[in-house]
Design a protein around this nucleic acid. Sequence first.
DNA 1: TACGTTGTGCTCAGCCCGAGAAGAACGGAC
DNA 2: GTCCGTTCTTCTCGGGCTGAGCACAACGTA
Lengths: 301, 301
Amino acid sequence: MATDDQPAPTGPGAEQEWLAAYDPRAYAPIAVTVDVVALTLRHGSLHVLLVERGGPPYQGCWALPGGFLRAGEEGLDEAAARELAEETGLLSAAEAETRLCRLHLEQLGTYGTPERDPRMHVVSVAYLAFAPDLPDPQAGTDAAAAAWHPVSDLDLRPCGRSRAAGAPADTHGGGVDGRAGTSPLTLAFDHARILSDGLDRVRAKLEYSPLATAFLPYDFTIPDLRAVYEAVWDEKLHPGNFHRKVLSVPGFVESTGTTTERGGARGGPRARTYHAGDARLLHPALLRPTRDGTAADTEAP
Amino acid sequence: MATDDQPAPTGPGAEQEWLAAYDPRAYAPIAVTVDVVALTLRHGSLHVLLVERGGPPYQGCWALPGGFLRAGEEGLDEAAARELAEETGLLSAAEAETRLCRLHLEQLGTYGTPERDPRMHVVSVAYLAFAPDLPDPQAGTDAAAAAWHPVSDLDLRPCGRSRAAGAPADTHGGGVDGRAGTSPLTLAFDHARILSDGLDRVRAKLEYSPLATAFLPYDFTIPDLRAVYEAVWDEKLHPGNFHRKVLSVPGFVESTGTTTERGGARGGPRARTYHAGDARLLHPALLRPTRDGTAADTEAP
DNA sequence: TACGTTGTGCTCAGCCCGAGAAGAACGGAC
DNA sequence: GTCCGTTCTTCTCGGGCTGAGCACAACGTA
């Protein structure tokens, strides 16, 4: 029990627990970190923020941004927001452009297998962030080498953990992305698993929450919104049906009364603009199509 | 970065982080615990497993079962299963009756506000468990006073955290339960919040997952299954429509070919028996009715 | 000016859902 | 044994939502 301290030790392990409650330094060599799966949309495809590791283990590999929880000073949510701001250099930009306030941040899950870090037992609380297209991470901050990577360039398979600092394996073909030749990047530690869980989460979340708007600037068009769904789900959607559905769900979007200044890049009329409504849940949900046949393995926390 | 160790400290806080990676005892007085929201169905209503606290703070209050993560020895999932087995005394029963293997255990969320435990910074990883009707917790194990409580008897409101060891507040009326006079129990720490999150989760989860079967024994009837939904959602369902829906979702239930020995307690024909199918997701989902009008505040991770 | 592209709205058929009812099987009271 | 209320199971019907296709107008580009 998180906090069960009997007056006196009564069972096996009780004494250790009792001590630990008052002097954990004598008992629990566990580190708590916060990692962030920050997603954004660039050029119509999903990107994730990664930082390059400067030292072993997994030297040269890319990893999710994150850092230690400052004991006694902050909660998990605050730590995640802080890490994200530090790594992306968004702190100053946010103040100027009020962009961070539009950023969606939610807890994804916690990973605590003893062997996930070869040095010690590290418990990582993972967060998931959705952001509109952000500027490239700025140098000069904590993040020496942070960059947005297309998720299709990454190797998200279970990831053999025996590899430590060697060159990334390059046996298998690339991802969905068309650029052949570039072998998929391998992520450090169990970060491929965390990212994979995050992708499952965002794919499921778009169905019943209006959070697709978190990937867009304040004003957007229905085709913009459709592009988010198509990128995240990796499926083409029917423009007419999507339009009808979005407008029929109460509180999803609100009309601004204006349209875009110009038509689409390849022609077409101007589109009406909207901003996010006040709904926190989509009713009825916007279900993704054609999930039949394939094995059902989507997540759904 | 869960594990970003630059070769040398380069930024503010980097030195501390670097040290912490190799000797956390000098830096991070954080304890990691695992708490479990274990739910079951008794007499047609939802019950949660609680243990009574024997010492301050919150002495005499009830709390979720849980305990410290054993550093280097176990992962989070293993710790949650171990705690549950210890507290409920189910370990031996499970070996004899293979009941634990039917228990569903999933991660719920992690709570790490610095002030959630007055003694020190405790990060708690909460788990959610669904079980068929289990025997009462056995004494003689770690759990001095563990018992199943109807969730309707508990006070799940935000919970003022200033109260430490005093008598539970009794100003407000009871829950849905009919037994008037019993003031709602207050839970220790932020456990009311955790339980509330767990209830939101299970209510949402029944919609798109077949996990309602985890509350039932191996063989069950459609009315049994309906009783689970009605207890968790606290709503009456249309028997005919529910029957049709359950049988129409592929992989939800599988017929055993037999029926119950007797009819219902108050008459009625024998019901056919089923066991859980192999689906892990319900397609299409079994949506709960009449969520219109009220503010949408259900959770949906 | 011509043409391809695209936003927006419409129609139509099919599926699913809520509501109601009917028939049959059963337990309990008399 | 008989009657009555209960409940499991199946069926029907009407409305709403969805997928698919199409139409029209507005727009950029050749």
